[in-house]
Amino acid sequence: MMAPVLRVDGSAADPCMGSVRVDWPKALWNTGMLIGTILAVAVANWQSILLFIVLTYASLLIGHSVGMHRMMIHRSFKAPLWLARSLIYVGTLVGVSGPSGIIRIHDTRDWAQRQRACHDFFAHRCSLLVDLFWNLFCRFEFVHAPRITIEPDIAEDPFYRFLDTTWRLHQLPIALLLYWAGGWPFVLWGICARVFVSSTGHWTITYFCHTSQRDLAKGRWLVKDAGIQAANIPGFGLITYGECWHNNHHAFPESARIGLDEGQADPGWWIINGLAKCGLAYDIGAPRAAASRSDLVERAES
């Protein structure tokens, strides 16, 4: 079993105290992508839409779910450095943030949700439109923030530090290539629509899989003392790369496989398993043994 990843020191932090503020760089970036998406609809053709579907699915699956989420954040498997950097680079091209930024976003939210109580910003108790606005255009400003320490192999790696400071600019060479291949329809669908839908799609999974007070919250596992529980959303495994099995993931974040039960499609795991068969993924994490599950309560699926 792989060692748990412990980056957050919340001993002096309060997950309830703080306020939601407009994050202007984030807001301008996502507004620009939204405007580009609206323009994309006006110039749409079947080639640009097909390009959008392929690039969006592939970058989220390979870069975000496999590279950033399962490998970089949760350390649920390892890969050779060249491959790890490639996966994280594709994850950067998704257009949400650089490597360290993704870790901070994820770990802050995960820490807050595992407390007995947290602010609505992390709990997703507000309406869909309010929560969408908060997540695409705002940040949470703590009164007492948790301290996050990112591992040196990420924080001190020159390539990852370069991505952290330039992550938005990496859309430009892709845009030039797409313009050469198909003009403005390819640019608008391959960059703007892809980035905006990727950001919105990332939020959608977050919203619907972390709403324990709603009827959608189904799952086998209850995490003790966590104010916000996670849901499995049946039927969406393929379209969410396996990330919709979020009840499993909250229970076993160390597992490279998220779709743990029969019938739970998990394309992210299929990629990792394929890499392992090629000798390109190793130290693959699995759910911890029953004797180490004192933090969990098993319950019947509703």
Rank of each mutant, 00 (worst) to 15 (best):
R293Y: 05
G219L: 07
W270F: 09
D225S: 13
K277N: 03
L260R: 04
G259A: 08
G274N: 01
L222H: 14
R293C: 14
G274V: 00
Y241E: 13
R220W: 07
A286R: 07
W269P: 14
P287H: 04
I228P: 06
L260K: 10
N247S: 11
F236N: 10
W245C: 08
F236Y: 14
I233T: 10
G279A: 08
W269D: 13
I239L: 15
A276E: 00
F236D: 03
I239S: 12
A265S: 14
G237S: 09
A290T: 12
G259S: 04
G242C: 09
Y282D: 06
D295Y: 01
C278E: 00
G263N: 05
C244S: 15
L275V: 07
I228E: 08
L260Y: 03
K218G: 14
A256C: 08
L238C: 08
S255G: 12
R288K: 13
S294T: 13
I233M: 06
A265T: 12
G237R: 07
Q264P: 11
P287F: 04
A281T: 07
I258L: 11
R220C: 10
I284N: 01
A281D: 04
C278Y: 02
F236A: 15
A291C: 07
L238S: 09
I271D: 00
H250E: 08
D215I: 11
Y282F: 15
I239H: 08
T240I: 09
G263E: 01
S255C: 12
H249E: 01
G274T: 02
A256I: 01
W270P: 02
E243S: 13
G242I: 09
A251S: 12
G263D: 07
G274E: 01
W270M: 08
D261H: 12
I271N: 06
G285L: 05
G219I: 11
D261W: 08
R288E: 04
A226W: 06
P253Y: 09
G279H: 08
D261M: 05
T240C: 09
I228Y: 06
G227T: 13
H246G: 12
G219H: 05
S294F: 04
H246E: 11
F252V: 08
W270Y: 07
N232R: 12
A226K: 00
W221A: 10
S292V: 00
D283K: 02
Y282T: 09
D295E: 03
Y241M: 15
G259R: 01
A276N: 06
D283T: 03
A289I: 10
H250R: 11
A230G: 12
K218E: 14
R257N: 13
S255T: 09
V223C: 06
A265V: 15
K277D: 01
A226P: 07
L275Y: 00
T240Y: 03
D261K: 05
G237P: 05
R220Q: 12
I284Q: 00
L260I: 13
A290V: 14
S292H: 11
N248R: 07
Q264C: 12
A290G: 03
A291E: 14
L216W: 13
N232E: 09
W269K: 11
L275A: 03
A290L: 14
A291M: 06
R220P: 05
N273D: 15
L260M: 09
R257T: 14
R288G: 07
N273A: 15
R257W: 02
A290I: 13
W221P: 11
S292W: 01
G237A: 08
E243Y: 05
Q264Y: 03
A230V: 07
G227M: 07
A289F: 06
F236L: 15
K277Q: 07
N232I: 10
R293S: 06
L222G: 05
